Every structure is written in C-alpha cells, then in structure tokens.
Simulated scan of single mutants.
Amino acid sequence: MVRLQASVFKLPPRPRRVVARPLADPPPPADRVTELRRFGSNPGALRMFVYAPPQLVEAAPLVVVLHGCGQDAASFATHSGWIALARRQGFPLVLPEQVHANHRNRCFNWYRPGDVGQAGESLSIRQMIALAARRFGSDRRRIFVVGLSAGGAMAGAMLAAYPALFAGGAIVAGMPVGAASGSLMALHRMHRADPLGSRAALINAVQAASPVRKGGRFPRISIWQGSADRTVDPANAELLAAQWSGVHGLELLPASDTEPAPGLRRRAWRGRSGERVEVWTLAELAHGYPIDPVVDEGRPGPWVVEAGVSATRRIAGFWGLGDG
C-alpha cells in the first residue's frame, strides 16, 4: 500500500484580499489656494482650503484664517493681506470655509454648543490643522489663528477649546467666548454687549470650554475693534480684553496705553513672559478688517476696509512673525 504524503492534501493558500484605499490628495500647488477634501471625519461639514507659498520655509509656522459672514475663504485671505505675508515669509495658511447648509449667511456657528468646545465645526478646524501641519512639516510650537466677526468669535472659541495647540490668536470685531448659546442671543449680544456680565463670569466661560486647569497656559491674543462699528457693539472688545487678560491672570488695567497715530489706540497687558494681550481701537473704523493696501498688497473688499493701518502686519508682529 502506497502512502501519500500529507502535503498532497493541503489546500492551496487562500488569495489575500486587497482592500482598495482612496488615493491621498496630491501636494498642494505652490502660490495657489487649493481645496483639500480628505482631512478627517469633518463633523462640522466645513470645506478646507490651504495656501502654499512658492518657497516653503523649513519648520515654518502655520496660520489659520477664519473669514466673516458673507465672505469666502480665499478672497478674505487675499484682501486682508495674509496671502501676501505668507508668500513673503514662506509659511502656509489653513483657510476653513463655511457652507450655506450650515448657515444661510455662511457665518461660523461660534455660539452653538454643538460646534465649539472640541465638537462640530471646531473639531473640523482642528482636523484641518492636523493635516496641514503634517503636510507642510509645520513647527507645532507656532500655530496661530485669526478671524473676523463670526470668524473672530470662532477663533476665540478655538483658543479656549485647544489652548495647547496655539501659540497665539487674534479676534477682529468678534465676540467673547460664551457670549451666547443660540442664534437669537448671538444677534442680541452682537448689537448690545452684555452689561451684566462680570469679569469672573467671562473668565469662567473660557475655563469651562477649556481642558486647561485654572492657572494653566493660554495663547497670547490680539484684539481689534472699530469704534464706529454698528454690526458688533464696540463694548464687546472691552469684554474680550477683560476676559483674556483675566484668563492670563493679569490685572484689569493695561500695563501700557498708547496712541501710535491719531485715532489709533493700543493697550497691552504684560505678564512674566512679555505682552500676552493687546487691544487695538480704531476711532473711525466701521465693521470690517483694517488694512493698509500698500503694506498688505491687498485691497478693500466685502468687510475689508482701508484704514491706513495693517492689522495683518501688526498681528503677525505681536505673534513674533516678522517685524510688525
């Protein structure tokens, strides 16, 4: 009787299952605003755009620019001078964009509990930053966020929710963290700042939205407001100053109060590591983002106003990017 070897009865190896994976987005082309469609779960259903400079500096900073209501990401970044500055200094921009399905006026939902505090739109922006920082090899110690109006209020919400992520932020014609929790209250507080809000309540609103314990580190912040603004009550800038100087553990009164030019006032609050909060007040500025077209290489547009001063250059200087 002939014995057959056991190997004769072995089944052939099962073919390996190949799982098709979507191709990654190609590297963003230089000196253009490009949309990236795959950046995470995107719970806030936002669009992501980036700007890559022609010559990217190694370990460059990363700046997130949040547009205001009725604007689009690319136009606001261009008109405000952020693209020109990024091109000159060789750092990339992240440009989140709101969509009509989320808000009919394309405002970021800075007041909705489901879109701030590491959820919804806030989390979508965080996912955009994570992708961009990897793609561009950004210096994780130099990530910044700036926004106008609703974008400014969302910038404040991002600074509160992710304080360890950012080195600095800027709020232009924006609202304090926690000023509203619904659309009607948001409109009311935009036109009339809360006169009953105490400084302690303002500070608590940031701390309630933040993972940082009391006494922890928060980013430095630049606040800008026009005194002739009829869309956002200028008193909101005073609440922002009280809120963020308090969060940093600083006195209510500023360490310095100067007038660099007629109608232009700057106040600063200083801590152990230098200035932590600054507030710029422009006497004749209505609602909008102030630019100097020559300095910014930008031009006036919807809610981007020629004011003879470059908020972009000053904010970047305050953050330590450029000469300010």
Results as ranks from 00 to 15, higher is better:
residue 282 L to G: 02
residue 99 V to T: 13
residue 195 P to Q: 10
residue 288 G to A: 10
residue 172 V to Y: 10
residue 194 D to L: 04
residue 295 V to W: 02
residue 286 A to N: 13
residue 299 R to I: 00
residue 127 Q to D: 03
residue 158 M to R: 02
residue 275 E to R: 13
residue 257 D to S: 15
residue 46 L to F: 11
residue 78 T to G: 03
residue 65 V to I: 15
residue 222 S to D: 15
residue 206 V to D: 03
residue 126 R to T: 02
residue 57 V to D: 02
residue 65 V to S: 09
residue 319 W to F: 14
residue 80 S to Y: 03
residue 120 G to H: 12
residue 64 V to P: 08
residue 9 F to P: 02
residue 136 F to T: 13
residue 197 G to P: 00
residue 183 S to F: 12
residue 11 L to A: 12
residue 280 W to H: 12
residue 97 E to S: 07
residue 230 R to Q: 15
residue 180 A to Y: 10
residue 76 F to E: 01
residue 61 P to G: 03
residue 290 P to L: 12
residue 59 A to G: 03
residue 76 F to K: 03
residue 163 P to A: 05
residue 64 V to M: 12
residue 185 M to G: 03
residue 170 A to W: 10
residue 232 V to H: 09
residue 111 Y to N: 05
residue 111 Y to T: 05
residue 98 Q to E: 13
residue 292 D to A: 11
residue 16 R to A: 09
residue 58 E to N: 06
residue 250 L to E: 08
residue 70 G to S: 13
residue 7 S to N: 04
residue 34 T to M: 07
residue 143 I to Y: 01
residue 301 G to N: 04
residue 277 V to G: 02
residue 281 T to P: 00
residue 36 L to T: 04
residue 267 R to L: 11
residue 318 F to L: 07
residue 39 F to S: 07
residue 129 I to Q: 09
residue 5 Q to G: 01
residue 65 V to D: 10
residue 133 A to H: 06
residue 74 A to Q: 13
residue 134 R to D: 13
residue 212 V to E: 14
residue 250 L to Y: 14
residue 219 P to W: 09
residue 155 A to V: 04
residue 182 G to N: 15
residue 20 A to M: 05
residue 213 R to E: 15
residue 311 A to N: 09
residue 285 L to W: 11
residue 162 Y to V: 01
residue 199 R to N: 05
residue 158 M to D: 00
residue 282 L to E: 07
residue 96 P to W: 12
residue 52 A to G: 02
residue 5 Q to P: 02
residue 97 E to R: 04
residue 146 V to D: 03
residue 234 P to E: 07
residue 128 M to P: 09
residue 292 D to N: 15
residue 149 S to Q: 09
residue 222 S to W: 14
residue 296 D to Y: 11
residue 43 P to W: 06
residue 234 P to N: 04
residue 70 G to N: 12
residue 98 Q to G: 06
residue 1 M to T: 06
residue 99 V to L: 10
residue 111 Y to G: 02
residue 105 N to G: 05
residue 131 L to W: 13
residue 208 A to E: 07
residue 237 A to L: 01
residue 222 S to N: 11
residue 43 P to E: 05
residue 103 H to K: 04
residue 196 L to P: 00
